[in-house]
Nucleic acid binder design. Structure first.
Lengths: 206, 206
DNA sequence: TCTCGATTAGACGGATCTGTCTAGATCAGA
DNA sequence: TCTGATCTAGACAGATCCGTCTAATCGAGA
């Protein structure tokens, strides 16, 4: 999600997952991520990935068992990137409001960078609704997101507040994809702040 | 969206768009809608549609110029169905809260009916991100939804409240697709009611 | 120097997909 | 009865897509 909802990784210099920078495998994964995310998984053939990454077909099948493995590696990388950039942009010295704000600012930045194409995991499960492996990756991402929201708010990942922020955040991404209007993000940001304030007011009272 | 977020049309007896009930064209469109929505547009070949609808290939290209035309007809039908079932389930004698509730109840019903696969328009634009005709259909749907929310709340379609409800509603659908947990819909429903109440309280004060 | 893993270039087969076409059946209306 | 629109069954071409395979190159390390 790095390229999507957070300013980061792909495109910049970027040190990857700790792999050497310019191996065929790395170029492959990087190109696949761009194409899968930007044009869709199902409408991106391996031949296009090979042409754009300037990697030979043999190398692809040397490193990956097939396109499916490449898709899963792409989703795994999105998870890693999301985690990395979410925690990187999360300044623990700030208050909850500012930390929540950073989440939405990441989305805005990706729009300005022209790299926003929706949530990679939502996109993936829509393109491959019956794929158990994609489903597992999506489940993992949902847990990540909820835990991040829980950390910010100081609530449990299963709390009502986290659940609602989960909806507002995903609503922002979907509405933005639908309308291509950044107003959706601003409305969502504002709504999220409202919810946070209500929780804080309630804490003071209770 | 009938089959997705509202209990209705497809599957039941159903009188269609005013077309004769059992023509090849009608069977085609009905089957295409089911398959496009349930399995995805890109991963549904015309041959599968033909086999399931028991229509000959010649008939398809007699009524439609190609798969793309079938896709657009499918989206147009989803818009019509959504409009029909949204207005049908919208009891004007009830208060705003109950009318807003009906919207979310539609989603719950489609889950129980086993026909929920997300928002057809979100799915379509994700599968075909660069398709201008799909984009137009999506834009039209967004307007419909906003106008419906505006009618319920008595606000302008561009008001902050409608904008936020738009996000919450789409957030509910996306979160439900991601997690397959109806709790997402209940949280969203509750959140939507909160927003509505705040508006009403504000109206009394202001 | 030798070896082995990584890599390239590209041919190839088999599957699938879209769209065209032919040939004939059915049916309703003039 | 004749006509024309609708429909069926299926072959077919052309494109694309995935994965396998061969033959050859490169580079690092033993």
């Amino acid at each position: 999600m790095s390229q999507t909802t957070h300013q980061s990784a792909r495109g910049v210099e970027h040190a990857a997952t700790a792999t050497e920078p310019n191996t065929a495998r790395e170029r492959l994964l990087q190109t696949a991520a761009q194409l899968f995310y930007g044009r869709g998984i199902n409408s991106t053939g391996v031949d296009l990935i090979l042409a754009e990454s300037k990697v030979a077909k043999g190398s692809l099948y040397h490193h990956f068992s097939g396109k499916q493995a490449l898709v899963l590696a792409y989703l795994q990388r999105e998870r890693d990137d999301w985690q990395r950039s979410a925690t990187a942009s999360d300044d623990l010295t700030l208050d909850s409001g500012a930390r929540l704000d950073a989440l939405f600012s990441g989305v805005v930045h990706s729009v300005h960078a022209g790299t926003f194409h929706g949530c990679p995991f939502t996109n993936a499960i829509i393109e491959r609704p019956d794929d158990a492996e994609v489903r597992a990756a999506v489940d993992g991402y949902c847990d990540q997101l909820r835990q991040h929201l829980a950390a910010i708010t100081g609530e449990s990942p299963t709390s009502a507040l986290v659940q609602q922020l989960f909806i507002v955040y995903n609503g922002a991404l979907t509405a933005l994809k639908l309308t291509r209007d950044l107003e959706a993000v601003e409305s969502a940001r504002c709504l999220a702040q409202q919810l946070l304030h209500e929780q804080q007011a309630q804490r003071l009272r209770g």
